[in-house]
Write a protein that binds this DNA or RNA. Structure first.
Length: 824
RNA sequence: GCGCGAGUGGCGUAACGGCAGCCGCGUCAGACUUAGGAUCUGAUGCCCGAGAGGGCGUGGGGGUUCGAAUCCCCCCUCGCGCACCA
């Protein structure tokens, strides 16, 4: 790989020079700039815009963009008006943390990183439309992020509320639920603690049900499932228990049929009634428990291994169905953030309650009889259906019917109602950091919370902020930013200093791509109507319940506000797998990164692209290995020599076509390859596409001399170059020029195949005896069964195997296989 | 624990229920060469056999079928996701 020059002189294929030349030419010509054109079907292809913190592109980016580009190029050649834009998700924490550490302003470091990444991404030779580039940290972009915030605000979809939130003590900011992974900060890994803070939220829960509807999109099942689980819809009932002092304590349950089996009640330690209901003699214990629960990290609290703990508060609750008094406990296995923060403890029919009851000696009352149950003591909770017993008027009812009947009974009497609960929480968008879009709100002593008037947008981030590690946003100490004017009374007001979660920026970037230059609007409705929704989105699965969920919410919210006329942002989604090194994630700290630039400057981007595609199925990802790249290297040289020495001149008058067997065979080969490559591209099977191109090139090298100069030969060479264009765009362009094709190969029509021509003259039929392969026969295409059987029985190997047994049955798969079944 | 997905040569992988191992890497042998880390040709799943040929073989065990890597059941291993959501 160090002797690129030497290899180039030997074969004439100088990848680096060719790539530099054509990439510059395409850029100068604006070859991939998309324009609205109603005469063509549109195709909006999209890759997730990258986060410019790493300062350079890594193989992961390439693994995402190169196959995506191949597909976009394929669609373009198939006659679609393709938009394939690119941009940068430029706000975010790492840039600010870097500023604190290194003293470089986030704006400066971010723009430097973007500069580097832009250069590297361009070196891929991808067909991105750079004229549409967006950078989310530029005022021209975040002005509209702020504007969209105001639209949500004015429509009741953005609100401020005090809540128990996730706080990352290392990054000094709150986090959305989606950004907490296993109780740790998704970015820095610090253990997240809970804090009571007043924060801005987006009302995503309003769309919980619609977000569960995937009927309008074609996404991988896995992502659908992850979103479904995240939203966590469960149907059940709210049953209003009462404390002994009359305070209502509603509980949520999915098992109303077990209500007669409630033998205790559990409140979350942070439940608002704990303070009021605790008996004086229990106060000390309860306070100690609440305090311990508060200090426990999420990790400890969420651990399933951990034994359940709790303390009684010395008060009772009354079961509205049975009138029974049951003791109230607090325990941290009950979450304050789900349902009503209180549950009825039914140990006989819920495993968690069972464990809790066993530990603290609480009653276990069976109310759902398992088939064949004769009153034995349970060793674990019975959670499957059964027959209701010890349940007052419901005795004998099958538990599945009981669910509905128990709720109906309670509804009539006013202490129960059917409800649906979701795991999904509203999206917390406030961040106590500098490097994000400021939330466009001011606080006036007289008029309270006021939105910034739209004509005063953008609320600019001050450039002269100071970055010191105080744990507070630099905006809090910036007088010029902090002091604002109330839009109502023009009196002095204080500006909101929180900025927005970067996922807000990325929830609408695909809309901005449609009209990136529009200074008057977030987008031109005409452009959005033409381009949206995105036809094919391609990116990693790590955003399943983040960006991909938020963007769906955004589109639905903006649709309801009247700004958009469709329901889903991304019609089709494809998740590529991950590239690992030695089975582990690549990272600079591990020192196992692979630098695409090293390959671009030696074997060339085209070869690197082809290799990434050839590694294996795209959705499977791959473990990086340097070794195999010599395959695509040889392939590129082979194709180079084959085409440049083919003698084909596309401008020349077409050679006479004839029907010699050689030509017929060559045409069949060409058309079969076109068919296969087309099929592979449609199905994102880039690895088998490359394999088919290798086979085709190999066959042409072999048959070259025999078919040289014929029309079939010209067609074969021409097709090879066209089929190569999506995967290896620069090599294809150079070869296309050399065989006299008109600029650009990427503007040519994708070759079509003639099914009649893919047929072969003779077929190889595998002959089995009793399912075991014994011989292979060459038969004329279209030979009938009898003829094949006759020929097969003449075969020495076949007849020997059959011996003196008789033929019971034959199965014939035309042109492929014959199975002779014997008996005796 | 629950839910997805995957287990095929030394390695990456390929195979509408129909010839397992295509394509590529690597390895071995040869050709051209002063040379080869270039290029080209051939071989390359395992076992028996001098050979012809035969047997075995897609994580393990069972089943369906004329025929199973592929479909069904049980189990094992790995990866990913979720995980006290009442």
């Amino acid at each position: 790989m160090t002797d690129r020059g030497a290899a180039a002189t030997r074969t004439g294929y100088d990848a680096v020079a060719i790539e530099r030349k054509w990439q510059a030419r395409w850029e100068a010509d604006g070859l991939y700039a998309a324009h609205e054109d109603p005469s063509k079907p549109k195709w909006y292809a999209l890759v997730m815009f990258p986060y410019p913190s790493a300062a350079h592109t890594h193989v992961g980016h390439w693994y995402n963009y190169c196959p995506a580009d191949a597909h976009a190029r394929f669609m373009r050649m198939r006659g679609y008006n393709v938009m394939f834009p690119f941009g940068f998700d430029a706000f975010g924490l790492p840039a600010e943390n870097y500023a604190i550490k290194a003293g470089i302003h986030p704006h400066v470091s971010t723009m430097q990183n973007i500069e580097t990444m832009r250069r590297q991404v361009r070196s891929m030779g991808a067909s991105f439309d750079w004229s549409r580039e967006v950078v989310s940290a530029e005022p021209g972009y975040y002005k509209w992020t702020q504007w969209l915030f105001l639209q949500l605000y004015k429509n009741g979809l953005a609100y401020k509320a005090k809540a128990s939130v996730n706080w990352c003590p290392n990054d000094n900011t709150v986090l959305a639920n989606e950004q907490v992974v296993d109780g740790r900060c998704e970015r820095c890994g610090a253990e997240v603690v809970r804090r009571e803070l007043e924060q801005w939220f987006f009302r995503i829960t309003k769309y919980a049900d619609e977000l569960l509807d995937f009927s309008k999109i074609q996404w991988p099942e896995k992502i659908e499932l992850m979103q479904r689980n995240w939203i966590g819809r469960s149907e059940g009932a709210e049953i209003r228990f009462e404390a002994q002092d009359g305070s209502p304590i509603p509980v949520f349950t999915t098992r109303p049929d077990t209500v007669y089996g409630a033998t205790f009640m559990v409140l979350a330690p942070e439940h608002p009634l704990v303070e009021k209901l605790t008996a004086p003699e229990r106060r000390a214990d309860v306070a100690a428990y609440v305090d311990r629960a508060r200090r426990a990290t999420e990790i400890e609290r969420l651990s399933t291994e951990r034994e359940k703990t709790g303390v009684p508060i010395g008060a009772d609750a009354i079961n509205p169905y049975s009138g029974e008094r049951i003791p109230i406990w607090i325990a941290d296995y009950v979450l304050g953030t789900y349902g009503s923060g209180a549950v009825m403890g039914v140990p006989a029919h819920d495993q968690r309650d069972f464990e809790f009851a066993k530990k603290y000696g609480l009653d276990i009352k069976v109310v759902i009889a398992a088939p064949g149950w004769r009153g034995e003591e349970l060793t674990e909770a019975w959670t499957a259906p059964g027959t209701m017993v010890s349940s007052g008027p419901f005795d004998g009812t099958p538990s599945e019917d009981g669910k509905k009947r128990v709720v109906a009974y309670g509804e009539e009497r006013g202490f129960a109602k059917a409800t649906v609960n979701y795991r999904l929480r509203d999206w917390l968008v406030s961040r106590q950091r500098y490097w994000g879009a400021p939330i466009p709100i001011v606080y006036c002593p007289q008029h309270g919370e006021q939105p910034v008037p739209e004509d005063q947008l953008p609320v600019l981030l001050p450039e002269d902020a100071e970055f010191v590690p105080t744990g507070e946003s630099p905006l809090l100490r910036h007088e010029g930013f902090l002091n604002a004017m109330c839009p109502v009374c023009s009196g002095p007001a204080r500006r909101e200093t929180d900025t927005m979660d970067t996922f807000v920026d990325s929830s609408w970037y695909f809309l901005r791509y449609c009209s990136p230059e529009d200074a008057r609007r977030a987008w031109d409705p005409e452009d959005v109507r033409y381009w949206m929704p995105v036809d094919q989105y391609m990116g990693g699965a790590e955003h399943a319940v983040l960006h991909l969920l938020y963007s769906r919410f955004f589109v639905k919210a903006l649709r309801d506000i009247g700004l958009l006329g469709f329901d889903e942002p991304f019609v089709r989604l494809y998740n590529q797998g991950m590239i690992t090194a030695g089975g582990a994630k690549m990272s600079k700290s591990k020192g196992n990164t692979v630098e695409p630039e090293d390959y671009v400057s030696t074997v060339g981007a085209d070869v690197f692209r082809a290799y990434l595609m050839f590694l294996g199925p795209w959705d499977q990802g791959a473990d990086w290995s340097d070794e195999g790249i010599s395959g695509p290297v040889r392939f590129a040289r082979r194709v180079w020599t084959l085409v440049t020495e083919s003698g084909v001149r596309l401008g020349a008058p077409p050679a006479e076509g004839s029907a010699t067997p050689t030509e017929r065979e060559l045409r069949a080969l060409t058309h079969r390859t076109i068919q296969g490559v087309t099929d592979d591209l449609e199905r994102f099977r880039f690895n088998t596409m490359i394999s088919k191109l290798m086979i085709f090139a190999g066959d042409l090298v072999e048959r070259g001399e025999a078919a040289r100069g014929t029309a079939a030969w010209t067609e074969a060479i021409r097709s090879l170059v066209l089929l190569l264009a999506p995967a290896m765009p620069c090599l294809a362009e150079e070869l296309w020029e050399r065989i006299g094709g008109p600029y650009s190969v990427h503007q040519q029509s994708w070759p079509t195949y003639d099914a009649a021509l893919t047929a072969v003259a003779t077929a190889t039929v595998a002959v089995q005896v009793d399912g075991k392969l014994r011989d292979k026969l060459e038969v004329p295409a279209g030979a009938d069964q009898d003829a094949v059987v006759t020929q097969a029985l003449r075969s020495e190997r076949v007849s020997r195997t059959i011996g003196d047994r008789s033929v019971a049955k034959v199965i014939y798969v035309p042109g492929r296989l014959l199975n002779v079944v014997t008996k005796g």
